[in-house]
């Protein structure tokens, strides 16, 4: 592989990592990220966050339903924490971790899957 190809590969990887949000100094884990709609259109998810020392506190987790503006849900002055949502996470709902300046650090979107078909 020549040097030019290598550079192209590095640039592409960089672009992809930026797109996938790897460049942030914060993480937001949501579990589950998918749910089956068999038991209703909404679900509860468990949220864990972690932010580095560079991030201004407090951090706030915003929630937005698909197509609607985000609204603040949970605010914390801890750099690491976890919390359960209520039974209001729907298909396409997003959770956004924002720093003390209001800048979005990470976003996670929960999606649904159809119920598996049973029988004929």
């Amino acid at each position: 592989m020549n040097r030019l190809s290598l550079l192209r590969l590095v640039a592409l990887s960089g672009a992809l990592s930026v797109l996938s949000g790897c460049g942030h100094s914060a993480s937001l884990e949501v579990s589950p990220t998918h749910f089956l709609e068999c038991h209703g259109p909404n679900t509860v998810v468990h949220v864990k966050w972690r932010v580095s020392r560079r991030v201004k506190l407090p951090v706030t987790i915003y929630v937005s339903r698909l197509g609607h503006p985000p609204v603040p849900w949970y605010s914390s002055s801890e750099r690491v924490g976890e919390q359960d949502t209520g039974d209001w996470i729907a298909d396409g709902s997003s959770l956004m971790l924002r720093d003390g300046h209001g800048k979005t650090l990470v976003q996670r979107t929960v999606t649904s899957d159809d119920c598996p078909k049973t029988g004929g």
Binding site: S20, L66, G92, Q107
Partner: peptide, 8 residues
């Protein structure tokens, strides 16, 4: 759509 960039 204001969702996570690579969802789906």
């Amino acid at each position: 759509l204001s969702v996570q960039p690579l969802v789906g």
